[in-house]
Write a protein that binds this DNA or RNA. Structure first.
Lengths: 183, 183
DNA sequence: CAATATAGGTCAACATGGTTGACGCATCTC
DNA sequence: GAGATGCGTCAACCATGTTGACCTATATTG
């Protein structure tokens, strides 16, 4: 363990060759804070849109992943959201009732429900994504390509290896779709 | 507005000189996802510690900022957390009852309550921070100094200018304290 | 000094989105 | 046919946020 009484406001393990300056407590705290406020800032615009429709962040997350991976099964969505099925079922019921999401019986495995967005759902997701895109693309443009690579690298490093595949699979899936569609 | 029906799965505004490859929808989505999973991964360890003590993330956030800026006023904390005073007062009452936080009348302005951590509070915050540090420093080390700079640059760009000062002031304040203490 | 503004606390009702636990049904796999 | 899996649902509860109303103590200002 660590001497707790000395750590509170952050004089870290003394920087050495093995633990250079950018790993000091103050640099870690800066990262924690930027991540917290950056994430909050990113979703603020989408929150306003959701408010107007009587939906919440939970609905947004579901819409987002269904848009990202059309036809995913409920179990896939559960894995991505890391919540219980009881919690998801409320959200999903809302979205279906509002005509934003459709659930069809799986073709190979008829126990599965494959989730897709209706046109209305796709339109709302696009509007929500546009709010995210505005902020993120602005930050990317301001910071530059190089910085963006670093941004991705650090965030990926935050995710424990076992979970990393899950995140990367989102990209794979959509890349696959683009190629199939003939992009 | 945007043609919503085409946007759902992300063939962006065609990349041009003014809107280069790294600003495409797929790059934005990657950022959104990494931010979401990265943030969740970062705090997972702290969550487990909190669980064991019957505390939640709200308590953690308060502890964090009080550690970061000892002696801040309730109104400062409210600004940082962006919640209502009714919501904060519950959290703060818990922390005071548990002997983790102390509130003293301000010296210049006796209406203010200046918040500080007790030794027990500082110890818990240190333990929680250690869980964050483990993840963040690992990601930093893995990605390298250059990447960390990019990580900060993009996140800072996500935060609207008016709020940016607030975030940077955390650094300023702690730097001031370190110098005063004779570091 | 009186009036007003500010910092903070508190009560009450309610919303959102998460949890656990128990069960049921359809379907797939062995 | 037996058991595992995917999904849905009921019920109770918890954590954390909201609004609105109202109170006190202290500071500031005309």
């Amino acid at each position: 363990m660590v001497d707790a009484s000395r750590m509170g406001t952050g004089s870290a393990p003394a920087p050495t060759a093995a633990s250079p300056l950018f790993l000091r407590d103050s640099e870690v705290r800066r990262g924690v804070e930027l991540l917290y406020f950056g994430y909050a800032s990113m979703i603020r615009g989408a929150d306003r849109i959701l408010d107007g429709r009587g939906l919440g962040r939970a609905h947004h997350r579901a819409l987002y992943f269904i848009a990202r991976q059309p036809g995913l099964a409920v179990s896939d969505l559960l894995r991505l959201l890391a919540i219980t099925k009881q919690s998801l079922s409320r959200v999903l019921a809302d979205l279906v009732r509002e005509g934003l999401v459709e659930s069809r019986v799986g073709e190979q495995d008829r126990r599965q429900r494959r989730l897709t967005l209706t046109p209305a759902g796709a339109a709302l997701e696009a509007e929500l994504f546009e709010a995210l895109r505005e902020r993120v693309a602005g930050a990317y443009a301001q910071a530059g390509q190089e910085a963006v690579s670093g941004f991705w690298a650090v965030l990926l490093g935050l995710i424990p290896l076992p979970d990393r595949a899950l995140v990367l699979s989102l990209d794979q899936a959509s890349r696959g779709r683009r190629e199939t569609a003939g992009g």
